[in-house]
Amino acid sequence: MNNMTNNRKSEGLMRNFLWAAFIFLLGQTHLCAETTDKDSAEVVNQEIYDPLESYNRFMFDVNWGIDKVLFRPISEVYGIVPSPLRKGVRNFLTNLKSPVTLVNDLLQLDGMKAGQTVVRTMINTTIGIGGLFDVATDMGLDYHGSDFGETLTGIGVPSGPYLIIPILGPTTPRDLTGLTADIIINPVNWVLWNNDLDWLWYTRDGVEMLDRRTEARGFTDEIEKAIDPYSRVRSLYWQTRVSTDEEDSPKPTESEFNDESF
């Protein structure tokens, strides 16, 4: 009984949150349209939509500070664990998330990917001993992730503005909605929730964050040395999660083939 009220409560909460995110998102779409009308010569970074830059920069610094005193030291400790062991943990957590990947593969109408997810999960759960070993990749069946943020992108939902949120960092209203949806559609979460195993839920998410942070050590060290770490991270995020114009890159002009002077 208690479980049921809890469930209803959390569902209500999630629904409210989703609505808030959706309304926020709708509110942003006309802003998107406005910026494209602006004189494009004035906007060098026209592909990145960041109207909340001053707030974002502030939150970026806050997160960076928290990371420095809390997450980075913890990840240094976790880094002492031999990397094959850490890889096993990572494989296990990735395998555990495959229902979410499968649902999104299907929502994206990608039968090929859905099939890969099913076969990968079958192989890794059995031969890979509960997912600890990624045998499927060794067989040539590579991993891919699918999330609800991508599903929303696929049906044409606009990203909304770039947003830095506390602790979790860079996102957009679209990805934030996707993240919430992925939590809701994960059957593993239903099992944990219905059996009062919240502590397992937190442990799993905690270990996953810790592992990601530990893997990103070299990367964050380099980011820190960049001239403008904020815009470096923003560009990386935007290119992986929002921008679709991947052919935008340098090319030689006709004259360049002949003319070598400046």
Binding site: V44, N45, I48, A226, I227, D228, Y230, S231, R232, R234, S235, L236, W238, Q239, T240, S243, E246, D248, S249, P250, K251, P252, E256, F257
Partner: peptide
């Protein structure tokens, strides 16, 4: 380029080296 191959960009996991630099420099220029 004139009988010789030249690299113009590399995309690492779909992130373009050139776009990343352009974006960062645009911000600094701003």
């Amino acid at each position: 380029k004139g009988g010789q191959f030249k690299v113009y960009d590399i995309h690492v996991n779909e992130v373009s080296m050139c776009i990343t630099h352009r974006s960062e420099y645009a911000s600094i220029l701003g």
